[in-house]
Nucleic acid binder design. Structure first.
Length: 451
RNA sequence: GCGACCGUAGCUCAGUUGGCAGAGCGCCAGGUUGUGGUCCUGGACGUCGCGGGUUCGAGCCCCGUCGGUCGCCCCA
């Protein structure tokens, strides 16, 4: 391999089979989005660097691919996520947008991380956002859209779990042990890192938050509290250590999930926090055993305001193609060879002699003008066996054999009269699935292929 | 940014104590004035990731570098 140029670290080349897999996933995303009433949007691939420090701080710059035009003064960054662009687009339209506004996007993103399983430097992520409503029904609709896409890809209930929590409900539990309101954010962060910190460090930080009760014990309780979404909330309330009445937000969400028929996919998990500070209500992640989270999202009622827009309640999620692709492969839901996902030709045309070959270009053109996916051999050989082999490999449904007036099933060993006179003449139409072959006039070919 | 393991044909890999770079699959062409995804024969394809070092001689040993894989940090 004398190729001295390599693709940049953490990027992928999409050869046809890979591209077919990518389109397969994107088709499921788009289909679920559209069926649920979302409209597709997109924004620029790069933004002003400052857009990304608004909500994430300067620290994020290390995770970005940022650049400055030669001789320019503005700093830009390749987009690492969609939410800032979305918030900017919403803010720019002010209150002119309908309520609700339901948008989705399937952009590529760039993060300057060290690649590892499920994490690359360029990836595709499906973003779904519902703006303008702060109802449990909106939360449920967004979650249902994610599930619909996973189902379309062949995943079943039990393959993945939607783990749900609610910032409001968890905040209630934290307040119950005396965490002051201004420390709730820090307490969330600690809950998020509960199992990553050494026990002493965890205890030290818990003690520093000024709770009147044992915060460490309360956080551990929260981190362990799980229950099926279909079950009553009494048990979860007991595990969390609050009266069931405190979990009203979960009850309303549970009712919405039940109405949408997806509660059996869902599980309460108070250990789900999401790293971002801006989540204000429901937060959720979709997990499968042995993989990173397939998707994550939640309610962020204050974010559009943060970017200069009107107060806009919103709920949304992101689902990346890398982890999802790994999961589908592990579950045997992707073909071993992605070529199987490419569009199948309707017809593959071969010529059995030179006269027929001369007619091929105009015949193939007319098939294509008629809307058919038509391919043909580029080989010089007139060996019909080889040509049909090629037709078979193309996965075409039918082969059309031109100039084959005297050989083959049903042809009856003609005299050779008419060979080469394809227009108006006879062609052989072979069903490559069944092997059946019949002859018909050229004039009937298109209607035969379209029926 | 840190650590571990790995880089030989398009793909999967073999390659002995350091001694002339191999196989299968795939691809291309013939066997076949002819009906497919079978078979037979032949062919093309390699600076052994790249650069340096040790050696009479390096795919093999040493150093560096670039990739890949898997962890850590981070995770929008």
């Amino acid at each position: 391999m004398a190729n001295s140029h390599q693709a940049p670290k953490g990027t992928r080349d999409f050869y046809p089979a890979d591209m077919a897999v990518r389109r397969h996933i994107e088709a499921a995303w788009r289909g679920a989005s559209i069926r649920h009433g979302f409209d597709e949007i997109d924004g620029p691939t790069f933004e002003h660097l400052g857009l990304y420090t608004v909500k994430s701080g300067e620290g994020i710059v290390n995770e970005l691919f940022s650049f400055r035009r030669a001789g320019g003064e503005n700093d830009y960054a390749l987009r690492p996520e969609f939410t800032p662009t979305l918030a900017r687009m919403v803010a720019a339209r002010g209150s002119a947008l309908p309520v609700p506004t339901k948008w989705f996007a399937v952009p590529n993103f760039f993060r300057a991380e060290r690649p590892q399983r499920g994490r690359l430097r360029e990836f595709f992520q499906w973003n779904v956002d519902l703006l303008g409503l702060d109802t449990p029904g909106a939360d449920s609709e967004v979650i249902g859209t994610a599930i619909a896409a996973l189902e379309a890809l062949g995943l079943k209930q039990g393959d993945v779990t939607v783990k749900l929590s609610h910032r409001g409900a968890v905040a209630g539990a934290l307040r119950a042990v005396g965490v002051p309101d201004e420390q709730l954010g820090a307490a969330f962060a600690l809950l998020d890192r509960r199992d990553k910190l050494p026990p002493e460090e965890f205890a030290k930080r818990a003690a520093a938050l000024g709770a009147t009760g044992d915060l460490g014990e309360a956080i551990t309780r929260l981190a362990r509290a799980t229950a099926p979404a279909s079950a009553g909330l009494d048990g979860l309330a007991r595990d969390v250590g609050v009266p069931a009445a405190e979990l009203g937000a979960l009850e309303a969400l549970r009712d919405a999930l039940r109405a949408a028929g997806i509660e059996d996919w869902c599980q309460w998990d108070c250990g789900i926090v999401r790293g971002l500070a801006y989540y204000t209500g429901v937060v959720f992640e979709i997990h499968a055993a042995g993989e990173r989270a397939v998707a994550g999202g939640g309610r962020y009622d204050g974010l559009v305001e943060l970017f200069g827009g009107p107060h806009t309640p919103a709920v949304g999620f992101g689902m990346g193609d890398v982890v999802l692709g790994n999961l589908l492969r592990d579950k045997g839901l992707l073909p071993a060879d992605g070529m199987e996902l490419l569009p199948r030709p309707d017809v593959f045309v071969v010529a059995a002699n030179d006269a027929a070959a001369a007619q091929m270009p105009s015949i193939v053109s007319s098939l294509r003008r008629a809307g058919l996916h038509a391919r043909h051999s580029y080989k010089a050989t007139r060996n019909v066996g080889k040509l049909l082999g090629e037709a078979g490999k193309s996965r075409a449904r039918f082969a059309v054999i031109l100039g084959d007036g005297c050989v083959g099933a049903g042809a009856g060993g003609g005299t050779g009269a008419g060979m080469g006179e394809v227009p108006g003449g006879i062609v052989q139409l072979k069903d490559l699935g069944s092997g059946e072959q019949r002859e018909l006039p050229m004039s009937e070919l298109i209607s035969a292929l379209k029926s």
